[in-house]
């Protein structure tokens, strides 16, 4: 009887040790199976805190999520004097449509698209819109332009992980995918009443 009791915790310990062994092996493989090519260096194979915490079918507990989100929110660069305007929705449309950038076939890490349409519907006339993210059709028309929603949208575009640590959305500003100017244009595409996103 006593033996059985002793064995159970040992077995548990062994499986935990094996799981962390496997994690270490995978992390090693994610480096050893890759090579740097152009702008895509091997640094890309090393996970940061958020990536690591969100690499399983189940997300971390609520407290961990909250801690990660707070740290990510602290990285958001807010616009000068709280001014979110000044973007051009037509430029924003180009950024939303382009899914280019940051692959090993791209010459420079600049001039990236936002790839928004890969996952989101935006302009109702665009049929070829992805469905991984929620539809953003009528974004400004439906949500209005209160300071709260405008600020949230900027923050979400800059660092989506600030609001959901395990969001599928890339961290555009934080990850230097888009510049502040580009994010301003995307804001205009989402909020400007003249933007096709807000046309019915």
């Amino acid at each position: 009887m006593k033996k059985a009791l002793l064995l159970a915790p040992l077995a548990l310990f062994a499986s935990v040790a094996m799981a962390s062994d496997l994690d270490a092996k995978v992390a090693e493989m994610m480096k050893s199976s890759f090579k740097a090519n152009g702008i895509a260096s091997l640094d890309r194979q090393v996970q940061d805190e958020v990536q690591k915490a969100c690499s399983s079918p189940t997300q971390p507990d609520a407290a961990t999520m909250k801690r990660l989100e707070e740290a990510q929110l602290a990285t958001v660069k807010w616009p000068e004097a709280g001014n979110y305007t000044g973007g051009d929705w037509q430029e924003g449309a180009r950024i939303a449509i382009s899914g280019r950038g940051l692959t090993w076939t791209d010459k420079t890490p600049d001039n990236n698209g936002g790839g928004c349409y890969n996952c989101h519907a935006m302009d109702p006339k665009e049929v070829s819109a992805g469905t991984i993210g929620p539809s953003l059709e009528g974004y400004g028309r439906i949500r209005g332009n209160s300071e709260e929603i405008v600020k949230y949208t900027w923050g979400k575009l800059w660092n989506a992980k600030a609001y959901n640590a395990c969001s599928d959305m890339p961290r555009n500003g934080f990850g230097k995918i888009l510049t502040e100017t580009q994010i301003r244009h995307v804001m205009a595409y989402l909020f400007d009443p003249a933007s096709p996103v807000n046309k019915q």
Partner: peptide, 26 residues
Amino acid sequence: KTFYYRTGAMDFACSSCHSQDGKRIR
């Protein structure tokens, strides 16, 4: 494990696009 392994410039794993039914990219 690799399937769920998020890394790189856009935080993607295979699972970012391939873990729900009926989804599309474009």
